[in-house]
Design a protein around this nucleic acid. Structure first.
Length: 823
RNA sequence: GCGGAAGUGGCGGAACUGGCAGACGCGCUGGAUUUAGGAUCCAGUGGGGCAACCCGUGGGGGUUCGAGUCCCCCCUUUCGCACCA
């Protein structure tokens, strides 16, 4: 096989597979099924190396499991809604739909060139209304159950373009297009009540051994369960709404509370502001300031606040403490108010120092001296009435219980996770199926009217809000409730909605009665392996877990979790940096495939590093795997015509030592590769093992003159080709055929190893004195311990070093080592 | 600051439950073939030493007959989160 042959060979096999429908999967598996899934790509225009890596890894597993006898579900589709399509529309005037379709065409061609074993009949794009109508349907189900609701939410607002901006459109606090300073605005937004599932989502993670620890940790932190207590303080002299709840994880420090601090947006802060112009002015000034601040929080910003003049009663001590309004208290977390304990909290300490709030120590360290600043560790409670003398842990429990008894609070758990805001003021997304009616309010679109399709004729200007809000024909409807004139909701859904359940749709992409047939879901789910980039460790991988639970509660699926095993593959970088157009370090997969072939490119990305690690693309290294493939192609059958005629060993042969050694290597390699792919998902070491076997095979071929020798060679040759198939499928098929096999390798069963041949009969024993290597010993496996020690003593290295020493003990590991402990 | 992960030849990386450190590959050196090669083949390749040997998995301690692997402390690099009470 010459340099240029790969193109012909690869095209040939891609056509064969297609013609034979080799990778088409039945809707319901007849035997055991395996669902191998990779994250679907966004059709940005061209595939990049991250895709090549992701899909190559998935393809290895899919092809492997298929040959192991599973019905393998291995689909692909397009995450086709989203902002870039609108940006393209702005830049070059193409309609988002056309731009997207064109990109899909192009990228599909690129993926096909890689020889991936997808069942292409299941392909769909999330911008198909036949898909997103089910987003809408799910939304309506959630609305019915109170899982979807509308409330004010904060958005990035560009006053220049008069539009809402996504976070990534805000650059250093300014609009990416017109450079106006971006402010924040409260607008009504749609939310999904994911917090309802926070506890389940968190607890289940203890039972998800197939997920990377890293991902689980990220998700745990994101959900952020926090155990503490809620305590009610009464504000003195304020008639309306005078009770303020605070959340704390350190109730044990409550006797040290020397202030009550409210968030800027706290209702009580507003009530106070009505009476106190100074407070009102402060709140307004701060909120205006924060509105101008860049998206993301001002982390090291200096804390500011204002003394309201009001006081609140600490229900534990009965003491009155001043009430402040300050910018460091978050309205969205806990109760939106905190008790300030400067002696035992960094932030309160900083705040108290600045405003002269007293610092009162109520917890002392158990063994260390008290620190200069706040003491935030657990210790022993002091000066705290009846609770004095208790260790922190006990005080927490006792005080929370006390609060509960006395009806001014009690134990409470709060979550960092917020409800999922799905509203986007965009055109190219799933329209939220709601109608606003003057008399009925927000009314759901009747299910029979779904899908609410995106109007094709819109003008995308990037100004003046979403294009939908300017699409009068589309906007105007009659209210399904009262028949009055009404308007459609113009917000569209976050595209994370699309990717939260797409993998169910692959099972039944043509279904127009339901999102999918539950029988199919039950047959294929949970997904056995889900591969994608680490960047989705949190959002996508939590949303899709949430969605599956909602679907479970709707009775659509019978699993709690969608994914058994998750693999977060590392990024592909170049010269130590992320590939990007601006850096000009993008490697185009097509160019590499044209030069070296899909097999070589696949082999390279698989071989270069284990999947979960970052991988630095280096052109020069691609030569290694490419060279290996070329060498193999020359070797088989090459100038070894007898290879095609030779049979496989059938047990009747008597093998010479070298032939037996080759057979051992063959079977050991089957074992290793099976484990490396099937269990560890480390194609890199699988490939190394195959290369080793190839080396042994190549060395043996010219010496194989007897029939048994040739059979051993034939076995090794077939094995190399067969094991290589998941990684380099085209060349493997080609060589398999050249070796005289008529059936496709894709349909051939995965090789099995002979246990007998796994074991070496000759072993190398390591000889040590006090753990230091002093000699080696070749011997038959299973040698007797005493004999082994005797033979070890004869070893020149051992004899020399044992001279003058007394052996106190000999440690042996059967078939491995003899270690003399001597002094 | 909090939390996680990782530090092994010139480079990417191997090393199952503690038992030959450096598999496999890139690169490099020497040789062969070649008009030429950024093609191919053979041999070598952790460091030091003529050698026997000695030293080597970020640094320092420890456990063990034996540590890349287990425990403690430190350093570095990375990735999340970031006023979450």
């Amino acid at each position: 096989m010459t340099h240029r042959d790969h193109e012909r060979v690869e095209k040939r096999w891609q056509e064969r597979w297609k013609r034979a429908g080799a990778f088409e999967t039945p809707d319901l598996p007849t035997g055991p099924g395996y669902y191998c899934l990779e994250m679907l790509p966004y059709p940005s225009g061209r595939i990049h190396m991250g895709h090549v890596r992701n899909y190559s890894i998935g393809d290895v597993v899919a092809r492997f499991q298929r040959r192991r006898g599973f019905a393998v579900m291995h689909p692909i589709g397009w995450d086709a809604l989203g902002l870039p399509a609108e940006n393209a529309a702005l830049k070059r005037g193409a309609h988002p739909a056309d731009w997207t379709r064109k990109n899909i065409e192009q990228m599909r061609r690129q993926l096909r060139r890689l020889g991936l074993s997808y069942d292409w009949r299941r392909e769909f794009a999330t911008c198909d209304s036949s898909y997103y109508r089910w987003n809408q349907w799910f939304f309506l189900q959630m609305w019915k159950r109170g899982l979807a609701y509308r409330k004010d939410g904060e958005v990035n607002w560009c006053p220049g373009c008069e539009t809402v901006l996504a976070n990534e459109q805000v650059e250093a606090g300014r609009c990416w297009r017109c450079d106006s300073p971006v402010s924040r605005r409260d607008l009504p937004q749609w939310f999904l009540r994911i917090t309802e599932y926070a506890e389940q989502l968190l607890d289940e993670m203890d039972r998800m051994p197939g997920w990377p620890k890293k991902v689980l940790t990220l998700q745990r932190n994101w959900i952020g369960r926090s155990e503490g207590a809620e305590i009610v303080f009464a504000i003195e002299g304020l008639e309306t709404d005078s009770r303020v709840r605070v959340f704390t994880t350190r109730v044990d420090t409550i006797y040290g509370a020397t202030a009550l601090v409210l968030a800027l947006r706290h209702p009580t802060a507003s009530a106070i502001a009505e009476r106190n112009p100074e407070v009102a002015a402060y709140i307004e000034e701060r909120r205006a300031h924060l509105a101008r601040a860049p998206a993301g929080r001002a982390e090291d910003a200096e804390k500011t606040g204002v003394d309201t003049g009001f006081t609140a009663v600490n229900p534990f001590s009965g003491e009155s403490v001043p009430v402040y309004v300050a910018d460091y208290v978050l309205m969205e977390y806990g109760a939106g108010a905190v008790m300030a304990v400067p002696a035992h909290d960094e932030r309160d300490y900083e705040f108290a120092k600045k405003y002269g709030i007293p610092i009162r120590t109520v917890v002392i360290p158990d063994d260390a001296p008290a620190p200069d600043g706040p003491f935030t560790e657990p210790g022993t409670v002091v000066d705290s009435g009846e609770f004095s003398g208790l260790p922190t842990v006990d005080a927490k429990a006792a005080m929370a219980a006390h609060a509960h008894r006395e009806c001014f609070g009690g134990p409470r758990t709060v979550w960092r996770l917020r409800d999922w805001g799905i509203s986007r003021q965009r055109y190219w997304g799933t329209p939220i199926p709601m109608i606003h009616c003057g008399s009925c309010g927000a009314v759901p679109v009747p299910e029979a009217d779904l899908p609410v399709e995106l109007p094709r004729a819109v003008e995308i200007t990037g100004m003046g809000g979403s294009a939908l809000s300017r699409s009068e024909d589309w906007l105007r409807v009659t209210c399904p409730g009262c028949g009055a004139d009404a308007r459609r909701e113009t917000d569209t859904m976050d595209t994370f909605v699309d990717s939260s359940w797409y993998f169910y749709r692959y099972l039944d992409p043509g279904n127009d009665q339901a999102p999918f047939d539950p029988k199919r879901a039950s047959a294929w789910f949970p997904i056995d392996l889900y591969i994608g980039g680490v960047e989705h460790a949190i959002l996508h991988l939590i949303y899709c877990r949430f969605w599956t639970r909602v679907m479970r509660d709707l009775g659509l699926v019978d699993v709690d979790e969608p994914v058994v095993r998750q693999l977060s593959q590392g990024m592909v970088i170049k010269d130590g940096a992320k590939m990007s157009k601006s850096k000009g370090n993008v490697v185009d997969p097509d160019a590499a495939v044209s030069q070296y072939g899909a097999d070589a490119v696949r082999l390279y990305v698989l071989f270069e590093a284990p999947p979960e690690k970052e991988m630095d693309w280096t052109d020069a290294r691609l030569k290694g795997p490419a060279r290996f493939l070329r060498r193999l192609a020359r070797l088989l059958p090459g100038d070894t015509p007898w290879l095609v005629e030779t049979k496989l060993p059938d047990g009747s042969e008597t093998f010479a030592r070298a032939d037996l050694a080759l057979r051992r290597k063959t079977h050991q390699t089957i074992w290793r590769v099976t484990r490396d792919i099937g269990e560890r998902i480390h194609p890199n070491t699988a490939i190394a093992a195959i290369m080793e076997l190839t080396g042994a095979l190549a060395a043996r071929i010219p010496r194989a003159r007897t029939e048994p020798a040739r059979r051993a060679v034939r076995e090794a040759a077939e094995t190399v080709v067969s094991l290589l198939n998941p990684m380099a499928p085209h060349l493997a098929e080609e060589l398999w055929e050249r070796l005289g096999n008529s059936a496709m390798l894709a349909d051939a069963p995965w090789p099995v190893w002979d246990e007998e041949l796994l074991r070496e009969d000759e072993v190398l024993i390591i000889l040590q004195i006090n753990g230091k290597l002093r000699g080696r010993l070749e011997t038959a496996a299973g040698a007797d311990r005493e004999q082994l020690i005797e033979r070890a003593r004869q070893n020149p290295g051992i004899r020399r070093h044992l001279e003058g020493l007394t052996v106190s003990k000999v440690i042996t590991v059967p078939d491995r080592l003899v270690n003399f402990v001597a002094r």
